[in-house]
């Protein structure tokens, strides 16, 4: 083989330069060292008894959690409906807030690069950095428990997600189409309407449906912190240690997630 030939006849050939190899080796060493350090810090408080005991605990839990209590289902329909509403209404509100933000944040459509663009970008980053569960905790603490807090939590988290993807789509639009519309003497609004919106519309629908799918997942657990939906039942069942109910609720959540993923895949396929 030719590779063997080169290694034997040209003995100085090496895969990497010695310097790069050293750097690479050092890099891996660093990762291992950091890992060991972090591991020790993290497990300093760990009660290893519980960990060694985990297999028996798991068997015990399984025996208590199975079979799921299907009769509980009749009390789950309403929370399930609420969960879907939280996700859908939250997504709609999120879209309404995200669209103007995205146009303010995109470098090619923003009316002011110095003031509005950084502000819009800051809103998007803030919304993205905070998990919807944290948004929900915050809103429950402010507005009180209930669906409203859930809807707003989902909306506030969606703003950043949709806003970011949408403004990136706006920035990636084909300039020549925009230039052509500009050349006809169109006003700013008309350039947006004819040159940019048609180009980002498919991306917009795709992003929205994608986010709706994620929101169904997230709204299912918001009840854990009091923001309504099926998660509230999960929390109640956990508090009562009613494990067969917990199993049923987890199964219902799984089914919802699978269905919503299927729906969103179908819709996205139909759009694109």
């Amino acid at each position: 083989m030719s590779s063997q030939d080169t290694t034997t006849t040209v003995p100085v050939w090496q895969h990497r330069m010695p310097k790069t190899r050293l750097a690479l080796w050092f890099f891996w060493l660093l990762i291992v060292a950091t890992f060991v350090y972090c591991w020790n810090l993290m497990t300093a408080q760990t009660m290893w008894v519980f960990v060694y005991d985990a297999p028996t605990a798991a068997a015990d839990l399984m025996s208590r959690a199975w079979p799921p209590r299907f009769s509980y289902m009749e009390r789950l329909w309403k929370p399930l409906w609420d969960t879907i509403n939280i996700a859908t209404l939250g997504t709609l509100i999120g879209i309404m807030m995200a669209v103007p933000l995205a146009f303010l944040a995109a470098a090619n459509t923003t009316p002011s690069r110095l003031l509005l663009r950084p502000l819009a970008l800051f809103c998007i980053v803030t919304s993205r950095s905070i998990n919807s569960l944290i948004w929900a905790m915050l809103l429950v603490s402010i507005l009180g428990p209930g669906i409203l807090a859930g809807i707003l939590a989902i909306a506030l988290r969606s703003v950043g997600f949709i806003g970011k993807l949408l403004y990136e789509a706006i920035e990636e639009t084909d300039i020549s189409q925009v230039e052509a519309i500009t050349a006809t003497g169109a006003s700013k609004g008309q350039i947006l309407n004819y040159g940019i919106v048609p180009q980002v519309l498919p991306a917009f629908f795709g992003i929205s449906v994608f986010r709706w799918d994620i929101n169904i997942r997230e709204s299912a657990i918001l009840g854990l912190v009091g923001a309504g939906g099926i998660g509230a039942r999960l929390q109640a069942s956990l508090n009562m240690l009613a494990w067969p109910q917990v199993t049923l609720i987890v199964l219902v959540i799984l089914a919802t997630v699978v269905v919503s993923e299927w729906v969103s895949a179908r819709v996205r396929h139909a759009i694109i």
Partner: peptide, 14 residues
């Protein structure tokens, strides 16, 4: 979801 997995792991491992 991470949080549901976490609930179970907390139940098992403390």
């Amino acid at each position: 979801q991470e949080i549901i997995v976490a609930i179970f792991f907390v139940a098992l491992f403390g």
